[in-house]
Design a protein around this nucleic acid. Structure first.
Lengths: 249, 249
DNA sequence: CTATTACCTTGATCTCGATCAAGGTAATAA
DNA sequence: TTATTACCTTGATCGAGATCAAGGTAATAG
């Protein structure tokens, strides 16, 4: 069982399953790891497939191994708002809760490494450090949600798009150890529709604002799903947000 | 040490300090309560006073005893978004975190029962059930934040006002054991400005939409800070939200 | 090869909530 | 008493983003 550090993340890679489980790897010791190893299983979902329906009882917990999943709530009349984005290494599921409060949908092909809830929770109960880790992760999610509230309540369409690009760039860089150098390059793992759901906008506005950022030279579109950012600081500036000026060491 | 149940809440009243500490009372046993009792202190803040500044290091944790406090984030240019509302019994502070990520401001006169962080955290570490309780509370906060994201991203001004009224009515009813009967009556603990910060609107829009709800007969304004709701279900309907149809048993 | 489908872009117009502006009300100070 | 201050309401106008509409592009199916 080897652990390798991940850039700017306080969790480690579980060598055996080649996934970064944020929840279980930061503090777990080999004996716990071995137990987790014995109870895990993999599951794959196609793009667009619903992983969990809102209101449904869920009996698994796990981590996203690859792909992107979204958490969203829908009003009766169809208005939809994404409330979370799950990227590789993110934790899926709510320890101690039976029902899902929102839909979990695969944005593209998603692989999940899952544990049966009762077994996982038994291990958590027996491992205080894991419990603390779950609290820590949930606080991070809460911070992210509140940051998004600021975006949804007060930012302009242009700022919202820039903020989303910053988040995607950041996560992408963290996973692939990209250096800033002369520009970042990354893929957009979301359709325009998914972006609009996340940003509280319409598809058309998302498309227009991306075009506008392109026209301003803030981003370069290789194609509709691949972006280059010649000047990361300029993009950050467009996001209108002082928080986390330089996450990339 | 007596504990009395609170309507629809899984926490109990700490008889000795006459506060409902959501965090510490649900699972704590008399010995822990006694320890907490020995380390607590009270502090009062005037309306408008900032309890914690964003970015500041915070060395206390506690509960709101009376009054209302707000959590908010501000953009450099002054745009402000409230990201949380703290009502009596709500927990203040972030276990395991040093700095505050947002301002905590007293909306009116607020009393807080506080514990020094190191002592509180030592007790938490020694009391696994408390750790779990903190996780549970944080998950509740996360759910609330995400529900608010739906509001900020997709609801109309009228729906936002109605949703806020529902939340205040619900909390008010939970604290004062009001029955629905022929109408609810409650005070608005926030100024129009604070409401606009919470709802991602302007003061003027808040005022106009409250007037509109009044004109529609959904609410009756006794004065600008006191509301009567003749038909709670009608208000719920205006909020455009199916969740929690009947929280009052 | 064409047809279908899913996704993206751009233009024209409309609308809800923001902005600008003017008073109104009630509490405290002078 | 009047003045000041803080808060709330309402009207007029404006504008960012929604809505309606029409194509465009690229992948897969037939």
């Amino acid at each position: 069982m080897k652990h390798a550090p991940l850039i700017a993340q306080n969790h480690m890679r579980c060598a055996d399953c080649a996934i970064r489980h944020k929840a279980v790897c930061a503090y777990c010791e080999p004996p716990e790891l071995a137990k987790l190893d014995a109870m895990k299983s993999y599951r794959t979902f196609q793009a667009g497939e619903t992983i969990v329906w809102a209101g449904e009882e869920v009996d698994v917990l796990g981590s996203v191994v690859s792909g992107v999943a979204t958490l969203s709530r829908t009003l009766q009349d169809g208005r939809r708002q994404m409330v979370g984005l799950l990227l590789p290494s993110d934790f899926v599921g709510r320890p101690g809760r039976r029902k899902a409060p929102y839909d979990v949908v695969a944005a593209n092909e998603v692989m999940i490494c899952q544990f049966l809830k009762p077994k996982f929770e038994a291990l958590v109960s027996a491992t205080p450090a894991l419990e603390r880790r779950l609290l820590d992760m949930t606080l991070d999610e809460l911070d992210a949600a509140r940051e998004w509230m600021l975006l949804l309540g007060r930012k302009t369409a242009r700022e919202r798009i820039a903020s989303l690009l910053v988040i995607i760039a950041r996560r992408d860089a963290a996973l692939s150890s990209t250096t800033v150098g002369d520009g970042l390059r990354f893929a957009l793992p979301l359709t325009r529709e998914a972006m609009s759901d996340y940003l509280g906008l319409t598809i058309e506005t998302v498309s227009r604002q991306i075009s506008a950022l392109k026209k301003s030279g803030i981003i370069i579109l290789e194609d509709s799903r691949h972006v280059r950012v010649p000047d990361y600081v300029a993009l950050l500036d467009e996001a209108g947000d002082d928080s986390d000026g330089g996450f990339i060491s």
